[in-house]
Design a protein around this nucleic acid. Structure first.
Length: 470
RNA sequence: GCUCCCUUCGUCUAGUGGCCCAGGACACUGCCCUCUCAAGGCGGGAACACGAGUUCGAGUCUCGUAGGGAGCACCA
């Protein structure tokens, strides 16, 4: 039997980090086992679901490269099917109509709480067999077994047993004519042939009642795997206030999709001491059964380290498209400066993110906007600096234009003036960037382009002369 | 309140009764390298929640305790 997994978000917001990991694990499990991955949009909550959220989720999945084989299916388009299955259940005596108002249910719940009991439906209509009647409060409730217990072997949590006496007759069809979550998922997972239900562990409590519905429907019960939560740095629930939660926010922050995936796959799962996983390795090695039981905290520093790792080791050409996306976002005109790939090579082991890279690249795509006072005071101050700039300029005027040739030029200047590299590179660096920090001096000059490099040297010489004779 | 779940360095984790006075990674930190910043190399500190029990032997098995979390909807 082919393994089929599904990711079933409800479109009430963007794809968040926890959802992304669930999607990744579902995707990996299906890929490793040669199965299929289904995407389903659980939009029966018509109050909170939006088309924009659907699109945001689709976009994020695509950016991450988590491709699905079937779907997206929409629950709102399957209403007739849910209705049909619910009717069958009623006809078979496995579900029944109930007519309590929401207020009555609330009162029932409060009374139970007051008695120190778990709030449950009291089963008033369970065995009354009242004839069907129209009523604004009419719902369909599932006739849950009240004897025995439900046992399942969770692939992550292990054996879980639940006494049926803990479960009540849940509503499967609301008075507004829409199915509830617990019913719709079961019908969908059966219809879509899902063999492995992988989802967040906030659903473990729902699993026993869902299993009872599977059984009432005579369907094969799938395997379950409940993933622990992802917490923020403080160990609290991830929230917009304390951390980035949206996958696309990480893109905006300059993360590579593969770095995020690598981080996520290691959060709650491991393979010995290995930290770096290519897509292919993840697929080959990941096993849902090896996932940890405990919640884990999201550590942006480790993510940043992984991101830099990929910046350093990926083929630079493969980073160009994503980097250009960031250049545009930073308001940079790519045509006004060096080839992005050269910038990537110069900056990739100096930054953790593409956003930072784009920020730092600005000096090569436009004029120096401000001079760092300290840098100027320290390195553009005397005849030595002027001599360095003058010498460099003349040699730069007609050398070959690549980092290696420029490196030769700098060394020649050092030899000629009998100065250490520090005395050569720093004045040039300030001249090129207005600051004391930049990539190696040869790359820094190279990226400026010959004409602009010469212009900046002239400007720096003028600055020195201005300072020497105000 | 009730039910269920969880607990190894600050963080992510390895560990399936002896190979563990607990290994790797991020972070932190010392030194080296060095044209700045990085990157890199070599080191360092840092954990089995607690208590009983089983066993020749427990991070690993059992039971309690403590702490944390989730759920208890006509929301998913």
């Amino acid at each position: 039997m082919t393994v089929r997994t599904r990711f079933a978000p409800s479109p009430t917001g963007f794809l968040h980090i926890g959802g992304a990991r669930t999607a990744l694990y579902c995707w990996l499990e299906s890929r490793r086992r040669g199965g299929e991955f289904v995407l389903r949009i659980e939009d029966t909550d018509r109050e909170r679901s939006t088309d924009a959220a659907v699109q945001a989720i689709l976009d994020a999945m695509q950016w991450l490269g988590l491709n699905h084989d079937e779907g997206p299916f929409y629950q709102t388009q399957r209403l007739d099917r849910y209705r049909q299955v619910a009717d069958e259940l009623v006809a078979a005596g496995k579900a029944y109509y109930a007519y309590e108002s929401k207020d009555e249910i609330d009162a029932m719940r409060e009374a139970a709480m007051a008695r120190g009991e778990k709030p449950r439906y009291n089963g008033y209509y369970r065995d009354r067999h009242e004839p069907l009647r129209d009523d604004p409060n009419r719902v369909i409730r599932f006739r849950n077994p009240n004897e025995g217990s439900v046992v399942f072997e969770d692939k992550v949590k292990g054996r879980i047993e639940w006494s049926n006496s803990e479960l009540d007759d849940l509503v499967i069809f609301r008075s507004d004519g829409w199915p509830t979550y617990n019913f719709a998922v079961v019908v969908d997972d059966i219809d879509m042939g899902i063999t492995e239900v992988i989802r967040g562990d906030d659903h473990v409590n729902n699993t026993p009642r869902q299993i009872n519905i599977y059984q009432a429907l005579g369907a094969r019960v799938p395997e379950f795997a409940h993933l622990p939560m992802i917490l923020d740095k403080e160990g609290k629930k991830l929230s917009k206030r304390t951390s980035a939660v949206s996958v696309m926010e990480y893109r905006e922050d300059g993360l590579l999709p593969h770095a995020l995936l690598n981080y996520l796959v290691r959060l709650g799962w491991s393979h010995g001491d290995q930290e770096i996983f290519s897509r292919e390795q993840m697929i080959a090695l990941f096993d849902i059964a090896d996932v940890n039981k405990a919640a884990s905290r999201f550590d942006t520093e480790k993510l940043a380290w992984l991101n830099q790792h990929y910046l350093k080791t990926d083929e630079p050409q493969s980073l160009v498209a994503e980097f250009e996306w960031h250049l545009h976002r930073a308001g940079i005109d790519v045509a006004a400066g060096p080839a992005p790939i050269d910038v990537i090579v110069a900056l990739r082991d100096r930054v953790h993110t593409l956003k930072e890279m784009a920020e730092r690249a600005k000096i090569w795509y436009g004029p120096i906007l401000e001079w760092d006072e300290k840098a100027v005071a320290k390195h553009l101050k005397n005849d030595s600096a002027a001599a360095v700039l003058g010498e460099t300029k003349s040699l730069l005027a007609d050398c070959a234009w690549n980092p290696e040739a420029i490196h030769q030029v700098v060394e020649q200047v050092a030899a000629k003036l009998a100065l250490g590299m520090g005395k050569i590179a720093q004045p040039l660096r300030v001249a090129m960037t207005g600051t004391q920090v930049s990539p190696s001096i040869d790359h820094t000059i190279y990226l400026a382009g010959r004409d602009e490099a010469l212009r900046r040297i002239d400007a720096a010489i003028a600055l020195i002369q201005g300072r020497l004779s105000p």
